[in-house]
Computed example of a mutant assay.
Amino acid sequence: MRWTVPNILTLMRLLAAPGVAVMFLYFARPLADWFALILFAAAAATDWIDGYLARAWGQETKFGTMLDPIADKAMVVIALLVITGFSGMDPWILLPATVILFREVFVSGLREFLGDTAGLLKVTKLAKWKTTAQMVAIAVLFVPGIVTHHIIDRTIGMDPDTIAGIMDGTIEDVVGLHWLEAARNTFWWIGTALLWVAALLTLMTGWDYFRKSLPFLKEEPRP
């Protein structure tokens, strides 16, 4: 195993994956959401950087090739679990997240079964777009949680009638609730739409991988 800069970045991305969940154990919201978003976005950026450096510097290794998809999957799976939990099991989030998790488990099991043969099934450009769509969607979906808790902070001490009056325009909005509510809804819809796009790409790449693996799954004729 060679400790190259790309390999170190990949390892750091793997270690950052559980860190996204750990943020919510040690920090109150929305601070935890901010830290999780920053950590996830920084780790996601290394997915492009380590691959670029490995190719540019001629430092592509078996260790990096093995660890890179594991780090990507760990990041996506753990972040999706966190977002699904804090969304209150919203079906608009739960359904595409389930599709993504199912595909990752299925393909990982298929790779394990194929063993050395799995190396013959190369990663496609569509699979790279799939990973990008997943990470962008997850990053965007961290934002509604941040905004929600800023709304909570700004409405502490307000009675429900005052909040309702601000939202329907009968009371002056001096704390910016309208702007925060619009931002929360906008980021939620954008993130959810991107997650459904990611789920579609995930299904397409999963089917492509399964189709290409079929020749290696054929039973040998019995004598």
Results as ranks from 00 to 15, higher is better:
residue 2 R to H: 09
residue 2 R to V: 10
residue 3 W to L: 12
residue 6 P to Y: 05
residue 6 P to L: 04
residue 7 N to L: 04
residue 12 M to R: 01
residue 16 A to S: 14
residue 18 P to N: 05
residue 20 V to F: 10
residue 20 V to S: 06
residue 26 Y to W: 15
residue 29 R to P: 00
residue 34 W to H: 07
residue 39 L to M: 13
residue 39 L to E: 01
residue 41 A to S: 13
residue 42 A to T: 08
residue 45 A to Y: 12
residue 51 G to H: 04
residue 51 G to I: 10
residue 51 G to C: 02
residue 52 Y to Q: 06
residue 55 R to E: 08
residue 56 A to V: 01
residue 58 G to W: 15
residue 58 G to Q: 14
residue 59 Q to Y: 02
residue 60 E to K: 15
residue 62 K to S: 12
residue 65 T to N: 11
residue 67 L to Y: 08
residue 69 P to E: 03
residue 69 P to W: 01
residue 71 A to W: 03
residue 72 D to C: 06
residue 79 A to G: 04
residue 79 A to C: 09
residue 79 A to H: 04
residue 81 L to A: 07
residue 84 T to D: 10
residue 84 T to Y: 09
residue 87 S to L: 07
residue 91 P to N: 07
residue 93 I to T: 12
residue 97 A to M: 07
residue 98 T to L: 14
residue 100 I to D: 00
residue 100 I to N: 00
residue 101 L to K: 04
residue 101 L to W: 08
residue 105 V to W: 12
residue 106 F to M: 11
residue 108 S to P: 02
residue 109 G to H: 01
residue 111 R to H: 06
residue 112 E to Y: 08
residue 114 L to T: 07
residue 115 G to F: 00
residue 116 D to A: 14
residue 116 D to R: 12
residue 117 T to L: 14
residue 118 A to N: 05
residue 118 A to Q: 07
residue 119 G to N: 03
residue 120 L to V: 05
residue 121 L to E: 06
residue 124 T to P: 08
residue 126 L to V: 13
residue 128 K to F: 01
residue 128 K to P: 08
residue 130 K to V: 02
residue 130 K to A: 04
residue 131 T to S: 13
residue 134 Q to A: 07
residue 137 A to F: 05
residue 138 I to G: 04
residue 140 V to W: 00
residue 141 L to Q: 06
residue 145 G to V: 10
residue 145 G to T: 07
residue 146 I to D: 01
residue 149 H to D: 09
residue 150 H to R: 15
residue 154 R to H: 04
residue 155 T to K: 03
residue 155 T to W: 05
residue 162 T to S: 05
residue 163 I to M: 14
residue 165 G to L: 03
residue 166 I to T: 01
residue 167 M to T: 07
residue 167 M to C: 09
residue 167 M to R: 13
residue 168 D to K: 09
residue 168 D to C: 03
residue 171 I to S: 03
residue 179 W to G: 15
residue 182 A to W: 15
residue 183 A to M: 12
residue 183 A to Y: 05
residue 183 A to S: 13
residue 184 R to W: 08
residue 185 N to M: 10
residue 185 N to L: 11
residue 188 W to R: 11
residue 189 W to F: 14
residue 190 I to W: 00
residue 191 G to D: 12
residue 192 T to V: 15
residue 193 A to P: 06
residue 197 V to K: 00
residue 199 A to T: 09
residue 200 L to P: 04
residue 200 L to I: 11
residue 201 L to H: 05
residue 202 T to V: 10
residue 202 T to E: 03
residue 205 T to F: 03
residue 211 R to C: 01
residue 212 K to Q: 14
residue 214 L to P: 02
residue 217 L to C: 03
residue 218 K to N: 10
residue 221 P to Y: 00
residue 222 R to A: 14
residue 223 P to M: 02
